[in-house]
Structures are given as C-alpha cells and as structure tokens.
Amino acid sequence: MTPEQRPGKARRGDPGRRPDASMTLLTTMMERPLDAGYQEAADRRAAAGLPRATSTRTVLVVVLALLTGFLFAVASQALRPKPTAAAAVKKELVTRIEALQQHGTQQEAKVASLGKQVRDYEALALQQSGGPDLTATIKALEVQAGAVSLRGPGLTLTLDDAASADTDANAGNRPSSGFEEGRVTSGDLQIIVNGLWGAGAEAISINGHRLSSTAAIRFAGQAIIVDFRPLARPYVITALGDAQGMQQLFEPSFAGLYLSQLTEEFKIRSVLATSDSLTVPGDSAAHLEVAEPIGSPVGSSAPSSPAVTGLQKGTGSPSSPSPTGTGLIPDGTSRPAPPTSEENPS
C-alpha cells in the first residue's frame, strides 16, 4: 500500500502526489494506528535532551488506569441484558403451575389412600353384617369400573410431537393459532386408544391417568385433556393385556396404520414397547352414581347382573372392555383376584 511498492501507478497532475491520496483516511488508519502525538512528544523530549519515553508510573497514568477499569466494570454491569418482563412473568407462571400440580398430585394420593380406607371399611362392614361375603364380587366390579389400580403385562406406546414442531416457544411468543401438523392432537390419541381397546386392551392409562368408561380425550386450545386433566408431551399410553396378541392385532388395524401414517408423513415420534409388568393406576375421580339393592344372594348370581354397582361411573360406554383372561391383578393385593371367579370363597 505504500507508494514505493507501486511506483508506476497513474501519476496524473502533481508528480509528488501519492497514488492513493484520495484514500488518506483509510491509509492513515491502516498504517499509523498509533496516535501521532506519541511520536511528536518523543521527538520533542529527545530534542530537549530528555529520555524519549516518560515513566508509566506517574500519577496521571495510574489514575487513568483506575478510571479505565472502573469504566469497563460499570459498562459490563450496566449493559448486561436484563431479563425481560415477559420472561419474568413466564417464570412466575411456571412456578405457580408447578406448585399447583404438586398440590394436585398430593391431593390425588390423598384421595387414593382415603379410597382404600373406605374400601377397607366397606369390607369390614360387609364381614360384620353377617351377610354373604361379597368381597370378591366387589373386587371384580371395581376392576371393571377402573376404580383400582391394575398390574400386569401390556404395551406402552409413547407418542411425541415431531422434532420440528416448535415445542419450546420463547417467552412472549404468542402461540400460533393455526394447526401445526407436527403436533399430536386429541383426535390422534382418540383413534389410537380406540385401536388399543379394539386390539384387546383391558385397562389403559395415558400419562398416568386411567381411562375409565366415562373418561374423554378432548382438547382445549392446543392442550390435550384427558378426563379434565391437561397432559404434557410426551404422551405415554399404557395398555394392559396380552402384549403379543395386542401388538399383532393393533399394528394391521386402522389405528395402527393411522399411527404409521402419522410417523411417516408428519414425523410424529412413536415408540411401541412390550413389558411383562406394567401398572395402570385407578381412576381417582370415580364416585358412586348408581346404587341398587341386591335382589338375590350373590353366591348364585352372575357378575353380569348390576348387583353391586359400587364404583361404576354413570352411563358407561358399551365399549368398555371387560378385564378377563390375562390374569390382571389389582395392584397392591397379594392375592390374585381374577374377575372371572364367580364363586365366592366362603
């Protein structure tokens, strides 16, 4: 860039003119980044017979160094990005939601333990009443009504939104109101759950919420709601039953094809796994809606009669499956109580 390096370059007009005279600003910036004042001062001091450089330990320099450090520190503190109001609000909402969810979980556990207590008292009252032993019948009906937790072999189907779906929206971003095809919808869950029922599932829970005969899978906004409780992704569907048989029936069925379509077309992630020991919790929202007196002694009556509709909920859909066959046992009891045992132990 110096004139010596390019001697033959166009020298129009003034012969002493640098060829890059029109770029003096850039030239001085690139070639002489050091303040010219230093050189001039050094020259003056040399002419006066002093050493060219002054000490770096003068008061001025130290004070200025202090000031510089102060400036750097203040700037770094003042200019650090502060959390925005939206982020603060989101954080507070998240803590509130988490606290309330924890509260809800505690209450559910309380409901479960109280329900167990109630059942114990019921059993005790039945024993003391001197009537025929209805314990086995009640147990069978509770299993059918989905009021107690069950344990047994089965399938777990894990569904999740497509990786491309914007699942971690930033604070302040309004959720898009449109349909995002990478998301699992309540309709998908309905079809898949119905397919599992059809394939012979005997008890199904989604994310730990038992599907009883009155449970509905719905949506509110973009949230999927099962039995009035919102779910968060991923959606884990636990279906108890004959694992191999269910899988063989489910995969070629309409729901199975639908699921593979979802995976192929919309990149919705799904994992189907079999297991020998799965647990489906009881429906904590089960409550007594219909009660009828027992007409005949239970020992001879078939379980199909609505003898003791203790915990059956309302108007159950006819598709509610009957738990039979694969030896599901109510969770927490040591004694297997197959629902098919019609004879009461006396």
């Binding site: 050091l34 303040d35 230093y38 050094a42 002054t54 320099v61 200025l64 510089t68």
Partner: peptide, 25 residues
Amino acid sequence: AMDAVFGAIRAILDGIFNDKVFVVS
C-alpha cells in the same frame, strides 16, 4: 478506551510513551 489503552501499550513497547499524550488521547 480500549483503543487508547492498546495505543499506550504499543507506545511503551516502542519506547515513546508519554503520560500526557496518553491521558489526552
């Protein structure tokens, strides 16, 4: 400030540092 500080360090290494020039610059 960083420009002035690095200029001063260079001037020190060049042997032509001057405290008044540093402060003023």
